[in-house]
Design a protein around this nucleic acid. Structure first.
Lengths: 195, 195
DNA sequence: CTTATTTCCTAAACCAGTTCATTTTTATTT
DNA sequence: AAATAAAAATGAACTGGTTTAGGAAATAAG
């Protein structure tokens, strides 16, 4: 139980749970350890869990027809990750979710979550709020891709998410920001005409 | 009350409401009529409502520093629109939301929504579900922008959302798909090298 | 500590999509 | 119906970022 506290605490930031509710919830949580380069989600398989990162780092990405990778999300300690579409529609995933380091997760199975959402309505509120925030975040990211240059997006990421930038490989960062790794190299070494 | 049914019906697709709940909810809904080119949200002002389109068409867009417009969303009959970030954080909007035609809306004020979410927990579930779907949609859109060419995105939009494509100006469509109106013109008239 | 693998850098040629400037067409207003 | 404003088309010159192909560093594995 003690190991599961991080998730209980996380949820408690958004809604107040009684001790009974916390215990009930804890019964549905499972600890999982994964090694670097291991996948917790793969295309073709239905995503079964929502995962909270206790320790480590992850990356969710798509491989397109030409074999190019496009990173949709990163997650380090105290973040959640999954193939969101696959999870909510319970359809085959399109993403890989891969551990970038040896990691520890707390996972909630889809079926279990459906169950306790019905049993503890307060959790609906929690889900609503974090989903709303994710949506607002994604909208900002989309607009940022429209309005800013590669270099501006890079600078923005480095200041806002330096903790992540330090831990993920450069090609992963480039594919998150939406440009080639060669171009990221240029940006980093100031070969980008202006500047 | 009869005029408010579309929203009640919309919500009823996701959760079952009693007649009492429906009536209670209806008390918070307001009909608003707007003329073409009128704004229902403007940068600098906090977005006060979530709006359901009964009749008409809308466009939510950002104007960047260089004065270029970037369309985040469209809405026609049976869709919702607002500046989502501004609404949930109750902070000044960054978007314009403009009527593309003379339109009729059913609006829910932010404060009222907070109130009845607390009063009718079932509505939390409704909110959660539609927000989850919006998020999944936005993620797909982002990946589509990463993986597909301008022309592919255009073709995809035309087949999936022809109803919208028919009703919105071309420059709005281009700015939604993330390229210039001149390029859209080229795509439409097949001057785009390949093809 | 050596080898293999993965990650990162460099540079030139290239291209998808932009910019700019002008014209034509289509709506809107009087 | 004329006048005006808004939207769409066109084409030439340009540019931000890609591609290709290679080599150098750093990490991981035996």
């Amino acid at each position: 139980m003690k190991d599961l506290l991080p998730v209980i605490d996380y949820i408690s930031r958004y809604v107040d749970l009684t001790d009974d509710e916390k215990n009930h919830l804890a019964g549905f949580l499972k600890i999982t350890k994964v090694k670097k380069r291991q996948f917790i989600v793969q295309p073709g398989f239905v995503c079964q869990h929502k995962s909270y990162v206790v320790k480590g780092a992850f990356r969710g990405y798509l491989v397109d027809q030409e074999g190019k990778e496009h990173t949709l999300s990163f997650a380090i300690e105290d973040w959640w990750i999954s193939d969101y579409s696959s999870l909510i529609y319970q359809e085959p995933a399109t993403l890989f979710v891969e551990a970038l380091e040896d990691s520890v997760l707390i996972q909630i199975a889809y079926e279990d979550e459906q169950r306790f959402l019905a049993e503890i309505p307060k959790l609906e509120k929690f889900e609503r709020i974090i989903t709303q925030r994710s949506l607002a975040f994604q909208q900002k990211r989309l607009l940022s891709n429209f309005t800013k240059t590669a270099e501006e997006r890079y600078d923005e990421f480095m200041t806002k998410y330096s903790a992540i930038a330090k831990r993920v490989p450069q090609y992963a960062l480039a594919s998150y920001l939406g440009f080639s790794t060669e171009y990221l190299s240029k940006i980093r070494n100031g070969k980008t005409s202006k500047s």
